[in-house]
Design a protein around this nucleic acid. Structure first.
Length: 575
DNA sequence: GCCGTTTTCGGCCCGACTGTTTTCAGTCG
């Protein structure tokens, strides 16, 4: 069991306690404990054995016992009891925006509602609106929320699916009789959400025997035979398809399982133009299979350069490959000497002191850390009042004296207020090396008002980067209503960079808009939006979005060195 | 439930908005 599973368990208990109407501070204690577990260094087993978990801030006797029991037995008595008391359907309802624990409790107590279907019926037939504390608008909002849940059901954030896929990959790779195994599907294409994980294994073993060996190696895994291979399930419901093929079919099977369907269709059409047949079984010429030792060889047999999985979405990538004009996509190494931008420290709602963030960024090869705590308006996130800004800047200057080759930049994530002005006055904004402007409140404005708000913020010469421009939270909240074309045009006109936020729940700007933005002359900036040390790795997810959006190194602001980055910020202020 | 001590209880993040009310509970970030 890993830290994330333990954290998820504690979070689930917190939600059940909340639905039960427990003391809110007790609820928060479990949620805090979840965060404490998640941000623990080392593995969970090590932390349990060394006593580090027991010592961790936020972990007390009760939460420690929950984790200990789960790690030891795979069971959680506390959760099992809560499940008997609180209908699990309430947990689903809690995910609807506008439905907090108190309202869910009311619905359960007054209308005996325990499922989404019952909730929908009550919202439609007027029973819900008749309840005290509810009204017609609540009913409509809830119906919209149910629709959103339906639309996103069965989907997982891609980085969760990727982690789960990687666990399987490692387990399968270690089995005797397996020549190779890779994660495929939308996870390999670096999509933002995924239905499940897909893997391909090259092996001479029959699926049944492969399943037996895998089951013996990982007893907790659900293993069943399925067409072409195995269906794998985890106790929390996550599933994965593992396709088993003969080793000499591996490349073709990997290509096919990676998709997308639209890419394969174009690739098959390209093959047909050349007198070849491409199908699930591989490449054929005159009825004879064409042997390809890997995917690159398969593309080469089609007269094409290797098409990176991120680009395989069925746009014009096959045509561009045929013309030899695929981009040289940005890579993680292109950020060496560049900036790890958009980080939160303990000054606002981050978990780590500035020095720790900076040390990790420096060790990872970055040339600077773009520190951006929240501004004062974000009171919920401990946003910095002006005196705290001064204290933070003094600390940064002191830290910056400590290293010759690295700098912390004084940034801020300033709230874009309802009227489109940036939080803080011009005098305070001018103290920062750069400013990310983001919307965190009043997300429900109509499109015209919201667009005017964002455009006005972009007129402020202190604004360097527009943060998470659409405000979406994947599988949780739709994007704000915004004329993105107008925003991108303004970004070009005013020299504002647009963020690619690497938080796995955001991945915003959407990759689908990156290429067009770049072609229009927009500068993009990859941001981690890190709130802890593990969050610094969000940069990799941001790079994946940029790659999927056809971006090259020069399209991304923070591939520039410190002087280049600062020059970009300064140039706005001088116009 | 956890923390921290002023060390075994009292405090724990809070301001703004929304939809409901007609003064405010609930939700959100």
């Amino acid at each position: 069991m890993d830290k994330r599973a333990a954290a998820h368990l504690l979070d689930t208990i917190a939600t059940y306690l909340e639905l039960k109407g427990e003391n809110p501070f007790k609820v928060r204690a479990f949620a805090n404990a979840a965060r404490a577990v998640e941000t623990l260094p080392g593995t969970l087993e090590e932390a349990l054995a060394s006593g580090a978990l027991a010592e961790a801030r936020g972990i007390g006797p009760a939460t420690l016992e929950v984790v200990r029991e789960y790690a030891g037995t795979g069971r959680a008595t506390a959760l099992e009891e809560l499940r008997r008391e609180v209908p699990p359907g309430l947990l689903e309802m809690r995910r609807i925006s506008g439905l907090g624990a108190a309202k869910v409790r009311t619905l359960h107590a007054q209308l005996r509602i325990t499922t989404l279907a019952e909730l929908e019926a009550a919202a439609r037939d007027g029973r819900l609106a008749a309840l005290s504390g509810f009204g017609e608008k609540s009913a409509q909002k809830i119906l919209r929320g149910i629709e959103f849940l339906r639309r996103t059901s069965g989907l997982a954030l891609a980085h969760h699916a990727a982690r789960w896929g990687e666990e399987i990959r490692l387990a399968v790779a270690a089995l005797p009789g397996v020549a190779g195994v890779e994660v495929a599907g939308s996870v390999r294409r670096r999509a933002e959400v995924a239905h499940d994980a897909d893997l391909v294994a090259g092996t001479a073993l029959a699926p049944a025997e492969l399943g037996r060996r895998l089951q013996a190696a990982v007893p907790a895994l659900g293993v069943a035979e399925a067409p072409g291979g195995l269906k794998l399930t985890r106790e929390d419901g996550a599933s994965a398809d593992l396709y088993a093929v003969a080793p000499d079919r591996f490349a073709a099977a990997l290509l096919w399982a990676t998709g997308s369907a639209a890419h394969l269709e174009r690739l098959a059409a390209h093959a047909a133009d050349r007198g070849l047949t491409l199908g699930p079984g591989g490449l054929e010429q005159d009825g004879e299979g064409v042997r390809c030792r890997d995917e690159a060889a398969l593309y080469a047999a089609l007269g094409l350069p290797f098409v990176p999985p991120e680009l395989r979405e069925g746009g014009d990538e096959v045509a561009r490959a045929a013309a030899g004009t695929l981009p040289r996509l940005i890579e993680r190494d292109d950020l060496a000497g560049g900036g790890l931008v958009h980080c939160h420290s303990v000054y606002s709602d981050g978990a780590n002191p500035i020095a720790e963030l900076a040390a990790v960024a420096r060790a990872a090869g970055y040339g600077y850390l773009g520190l951006t705590d929240h501004s004062a308006a974000a009171a919920y996130a401990g946003g910095l009042r002006e005196d705290a800004v001064l204290r933070q800047h003094a600390e940064i200057e002191e830290l910056n004296r400590g290293w010759p080759d690295f700098r912390i930049l004084k940034g801020i994530e300033a709230d874009i207020l309802a009227d489109g002005t940036l939080d803080y006055g011009a005098e305070t904004l001018a103290r920062f090396d750069f400013v990310i402007g983001s919307i965190h409140s009043r997300m429900d404005m109509d499109r015209a008002t919201m667009t005017a708000r964002v455009l006005r913020a972009m007129d402020d010469p202190h604004l360097t980067i527009l943060g998470h421009p659409t405000g979406r939270l994947l599988l949780t909240r739709d994007p704000i209503a915004l004329d993105l074309d107008a925003v991108l045009a303004k970004a070009v006109e005013r020299g504002v960079a647009i963020e690619i936020n690497g938080d796995p729940q955001r991945l915003d700007l959407d990759w689908r808009r990156c290429r067009g933005a770049r072609d229009a002359g927009v500068m993009l900036s990859i941001g981690a939006d890190a709130h802890s040390l593990p969050g610094l790795d969000n940069m990799d997810l941001g790079v994946a979005v940029a790659r999927k959006g056809w971006l090259e190194k020069t399209d991304v602001l923070n591939t520039r060195n410190r002087e280049g980055f600062l020059a970009f910020a300064r140039s706005r202020r001088q116009t």
